[in-house]
């Protein structure tokens, strides 16, 4: 327990720029704790997305590589092929991974690329000021769905994690949340398992984390936690979606 309360070595001293109540910071901390616990800080190369976590390279105290919007899995592939013995992870938002970067994530997963992807689903584009994401819920108002997301015109909330689970490449895929301490503990377990799988050379792993964006949802941080539980969780059920020890 003592370890959790202390400040992870794998985080820099830099102050997060995230809004009050944003769960990006929570997930950063979990990843850093895992790097500490697995003692892989000096073995890890992270790939930062274009999204609110664009400055992730300022926070993770490991080697970091910036990618263009959505292409992190391709960049990570390049890194991993040069350094197959290193731990490589991508950290991506829902616009980054589930919209502009769909091709890259599908093919990295399908190749069973031995990397770990942390996928932050906050049902919106945070960085650019609250546009509709592919994960935006039905009826949810955003700056580009001002009358609420209309499924006939904008399609359904996309379930990337389920989609990717249908592929043969991935070794471990799960959806977690970080809106309560209990869920945070479970999220950490899943993330750690994913990194361990990579260390064991078992192939592609992805953890989707349901996350909040109080700023662009236009509600308080506390209401955001409730909103996540009440509206996001029914559409994006938590749990392990794919878990195979050996990828043939």
């Amino acid at each position: 327990m003592k370890k959790i309360a202390s400040y992870p070595d794998s985080l820099t001293e830099k102050h997060f720029h995230y809004c009050p109540g944003c769960t990006h910071g929570t997930v950063h901390r979990l990843i850093a704790e895992i790097m500490d616990e697995l003692d892989i800080r000096e073995e890890t190369i992270g790939v930062a997305p274009v999204g609110c976590a664009v400055l992730a390279y300022e926070y993770f105290d490991c080697d970091m590589h910036e990618a263009s919007h959505g292409r992190a899995p391709a960049v990570a592939t390049g890194i991993k092929r040069v350094h197959p013995d290193k731990v490589v992870f991508t950290y991506q938002g829902d616009g980054d991974l589930a919209s502009i970067g769909t091709a890259e994530i599908v093919h990295a997963a399908n190749r069973g690329e031995n990397i770990t992807t942390v996928f932050i689903n906050n049902a919106i584009y945070g960085m650019t000021g609250g546009q509709m994401a592919p994960t935006t819920l039905e009826g949810q108002k955003t700056t580009t769905s001002p009358y609420g997301r209309n499924l006939k015109e904008a399609g359904n909330p996309i379930k990337m994690t389920e989609m990717l689970s249908a592929l043969d490449g991935p070794s471990y895929i799960a959806r977690v949340s970080v809106h309560t301490p209990k869920h945070i503990r479970k999220a950490k377990k899943a993330l750690k398992k994913a990194f361990q799988r990579q260390l064991d050379g078992r192939g592609f792993t992805l953890i989707e984390v349901l996350s909040t964006c109080p700023t662009n949802w236009g509600i308080t941080p506390k209401d955001a936690l409730n909103w996540l539980e009440e509206y996001m969780m029914p559409v994006y059920p938590l749990g392990d979606l794919k878990d195979i020890e050996e990828v043939e």
């Binding site: 616009g95 584009y125 960085m127 650019t128 000021g129 546009q131 700056t143 580009t144």
Partner: peptide, 9 residues
């Protein structure tokens, strides 16, 4: 979307 033209969409 992309800044600084988001007001157009």
């Amino acid at each position: 979307p992309i800044t600084p033209q988001n007001d157009i969409p």
